[in-house]
Computed example of a mutant assay.
Amino acid sequence: MSSPNVEPEASDRILTIPNVLSGVRLLLIPLFAYLLLGPRADGLALIVLLASGATDWLDGKLARALDQSSRLGALLDPLVDRLSVVTTLVTFVIRGIIPWWVAALLIGRDLLLAGTMFVYKRRSMPPPDVIYLGKAATFVLMVALPVLLGSTGDTGVATVLAPIGNALLIWGTGLYVWTGALYTYKAFTVAKAVPPSADRAARNG
């Protein structure tokens, strides 16, 4: 009976294709902000935003396809995601593309959910399973933002894109906040039902 193949340890890799793509996305963030707020080159900013979204999708696919998942990637990818989203929302508010309260709702939702992670950490539990509706909400918002940026001009295309982008933004924001409430409720029920690990250890001891 032959011994099973042993996969090489990849968790500590730094220089991987997905990590390079995450680094590129990180560099695109200040470029996007500059293009949108400096020369107001909305066309170029839209290209950068689409390129950032494409590399975000690609690095996850490549990490799985090439077996190049790493600890750095697990930290870097969501960090770049959050920085990209916050930068996009803040710059959109400054430019008047979206109202400030929409950005406040979306950013506040993420901050709240980040706080709920301590509930699971204190109980030595994994984070909750991803809600499919939450993925759908994120997808709708990621489509809405480029569409809204494309609606900033005075062309006929911009006129058509404006109501589409606003409709997507409303639906995406509603779904995003609703799923945030579901995640928060789930964390609340866990906090009530499961004592922290230290308390369980003290009782067992």
Rank of each mutant, 00 (worst) to 15 (best):
T184D: 02
M117W: 05
A41Y: 09
L175D: 07
L75I: 01
T184Q: 04
L113F: 05
L145P: 02
D12M: 14
Y132M: 07
G53R: 03
L111K: 00
V160D: 04
G180Y: 09
F118T: 11
L37F: 06
R25S: 03
R25D: 03
I170N: 05
T155I: 05
Y183L: 04
Y132H: 04
T184K: 01
V48N: 06
T152S: 10
M142F: 12
S84R: 11
L36G: 10
L66K: 11
Y120A: 09
V157N: 08
V102D: 00
D154E: 15
F139T: 15
L37N: 08
R25P: 04
L76I: 00
L75C: 03
D59N: 08
N166H: 12
A33K: 14
I17M: 10
W57K: 03
Y132W: 09
K61L: 13
G172N: 09
L112F: 08
L27I: 14
L141R: 12
L161T: 09
V143N: 02
R95Y: 05
V24R: 01
L112V: 08
T55L: 06
A104W: 03
D59L: 01
L31M: 15
A201M: 09
V80E: 02
V80F: 00
L133T: 06
F188Y: 15
G108P: 11
N166F: 05
P196T: 02
V194N: 07
V90M: 07
S151R: 07
G73D: 09
R122L: 06
G23E: 11
D81V: 01
I131G: 10
N166G: 01
L46S: 10
L105N: 05
L46A: 08
K135Y: 09
W101G: 05
I94D: 12
R64F: 02
V194W: 01
L72T: 01
A144R: 07
P126D: 14
S69T: 15
V90Q: 05
R40Q: 15
V85P: 01
T159A: 15
L44G: 13
L145V: 00
Y176I: 00
L169F: 04
L145Y: 15
D129L: 10
T88I: 10
I170K: 13
S151K: 05
W171L: 14
A74N: 13
G53N: 03
L149P: 12
G180H: 11
L28I: 03
G73I: 04
L58W: 01
L175F: 06
Q68W: 02
I97W: 12
